[in-house]
């Protein structure tokens, strides 16, 4: 597979600076901060925020239904606690929404010839980089809502264990599939 064709394939997910296995001097070593990062789909944020709203709404509905139903009598402490519970749910929902509003646009990924990178986090930024050579298998994860929105998460598993699964959330299905195909066709993975 030549680089040119990949560049065409990845108009969305741009192929970054190239790492080769030629002997290069230290100054030529590809730099992580030079990555050409690509944002994930803006729909991911929409999904997350609406999810936050929906779950807060459902929880409030459940609490209210319990409070105002006429089948059995609630103990007094619960009745007193009701407005606080609703308030708590609202506050948490707002925090959740605000977090996603600001954090989701910061999730960015990049593909280089030899590795995948993901940047994320609002206060605590992390930039993780997964060499394709070390990939054991790839999965596309699509929940029902993500399917509706035409999104998918790409999970990349290495021998680093389950806690270190590399995941790019909320990218368009076509992009995810192309990324997956790129990883699978990569000579390091397909050679196994």
């Amino acid at each position: 597979m030549t680089l040119g064709t990949e560049n065409e394939t990845f108009s969305n997910a741009q192929l970054n600076a190239i790492t080769t296995n030629e002997n290069t001097s230290a100054s030529d070593i590809p730099q992580l901060y030079q990555l050409n990062l690509e944002a994930i789909s803006p729909r991911y944020r929409v999904i997350n925020i609406s999810l936050a709203f929906c779950s807060a709404f459902v929880l409030i509905m459940v609490a209210s239904a319990l409070r105002y139903q006429s089948f059995f009598v609630l103990p007094d402490p619960l009745v007193i606690a009701y407005p606080f519970i609703v308030m708590g749910i609202c506050v948490l929902g707002c925090l959740w929404t605000t977090y996603h509003f600001f954090a989701d646009p910061l999730i960015k990924y990049a593909l280089r010839e030899q590795d995948l990178s993901l940047q994320s986090g609002l206060v605590f930024r992390s930039l993780s980089c997964q060499p394709i050579l070390r990939v054991q298998h790839v999965e596309l994860k699509r929940g029902p809502i993500a399917r509706l929105a035409g999104l998918a998460s790409l999970q990349v598993f290495s021998a680093g264990g389950a806690t270190h699964t590399f995941e790019i959330p909320g990218i368009e299905v076509e992009v995810a599939e192309r990324l997956r195909q790129f990883i699978l066709n990569h000579k390091d993975v397909s050679a196994k």
């Binding site: 206060v123 605590f124 930024r125 993780s128 997964q130 060499p131 021998a159 680093g160 270190h164």
Partner: peptide, 14 residues
């Protein structure tokens, strides 16, 4: 032998 590399930075650390 490294499988994955992560660089983390909080806003304050930056």
């Amino acid at each position: 032998k490294v499988q994955q590399v992560v660089v983390k930075q909080s806003v304050f650390m930056k």
